[in-house]
């Protein structure tokens, strides 16, 4: 039963799941803390891919491409929060329309800068090829994505659980008012969280390039599955975004192979089932409406 195909689909699913995780974890933290559904998250994933590719082609350094994607997301995320999000803070409808509008603008902007066609993001030499485990072929690049995702996962986990800032972010998800009474400037925490979340999406885009190729639609394709992963995992829960993303990645991989026409339907059906059984998501604490 566990043939080569199975392991191929498994690794593919895990790699895609890790990319979704890089989008979903930030999306979930930002929504949990600030009650902002950030539709630009997928667009920053896409921009990360374009920016990473440009840096790679210019410098021939994949490490610089990754760092560039990370930094680009952090700086742009911080600026977007300060300039665009903050003035509308507290008004969920306006914020929803704002990020939706920004997403559309960003998705057109890449077409102006880089053109509408699919661009190839070459793999660095050391990540070309595959590793043979008996009969099973494990492509290096997919293993790299899974490994990179795991490293980010551990770093973000340690940050959220061991540092005072990280613990404050988790506390802010539950009760931002109380956090302020301890002398903490919650607005700075918001800006930092937004920048961090966007930088994760953007670096995810940068490493996705050689795997998915680079084209404008990766923004829409991935924001939808990331939102589903967040809802399935539980809004505001980091562990939930990990579980939700990997689940969606695997379902897409296996479902997409055996029933390609219904790949997206699998995601939505999973979300519906989870919401029926556990409205707060697999790891969530509150309701999905996140009322406060």
């Amino acid at each position: 039963m566990f043939d080569t195909l199975f392991f191929n689909l498994l690794l593919n699913g895990l790699a895609h799941g890790m990319l979704i995780f890089l989008i979903a974890s930030g999306l979930s933290l930002i929504f949990g803390l600030m009650r902002v559904v950030n539709f630009t998250h997928g667009s920053f994933f896409m921009f990360g891919a374009y920016v990473g590719r440009s840096i790679y082609l210019a410098t021939d350094s994949f490490v610089l491409a990754i760092l560039g994607g990370l930094l680009f997301g952090f700086v742009c995320g911080g600026l977007v929060e300060r300039i665009a999000i903050r003035p509308f803070f507290g008004n969920r409808v306006q914020l929803l329309l704002l990020t939706l509008g920004m997403m559309l603008v960003m998705n057109e902007l890449v077409k102006i800068i880089w053109g509408p066609t699919i661009l190839r993001f070459p793999r660095p030499d050391y990540l070309i090829g595959s590793f043979m485990l008996g009969d099973i072929i494990l492509p290096y690049y997919r293993m790299f994505i899974v490994g990179f995702g795991l490293v980010v996962l551990v770093i973000v986990y340690l940050f959220l659980n061991k540092t005072r800032l990280g613990i404050t972010i988790r506390a802010g998800v539950e009760n931002p008012e109380m956090v302020q009474s301890f002398g903490i400037n919650i607005k700075q925490v918001f800006t930092f969280t937004f920048a961090l979340g966007v930088s994760l999406a953007s670096v995810g885009g940068a490493i996705s390039g050689p795997f998915l190729s680079v084209y404008p639609e990766i923004a829409m394709d991935n924001i939808l599955v990331a939102i589903i992963a967040v809802v399935v995992g539980g809004i505001g829960s980091f562990g939930g975004s990990v579980a939700g993303s990997l689940l969606i990645g695997l379902i897409n991989s296996f479902g997409g192979f055996y029933l390609p026409q219904a790949a997206m339907a699998f995601n939505v059906v999973l979300m519906a089932l989870v919401l029926l059984v556990r409205p707060q998501g697999l790891f969530g604490r509150g309701g999905v409406t996140g009322g406060r």
Partner: peptide
């Protein structure tokens, strides 16, 4: 105003 998902120490 307890942060219920955090430990006492956190």
């Amino acid at each position: 105003g307890i942060f219920g998902g955090l430990t006492v120490y956190e």
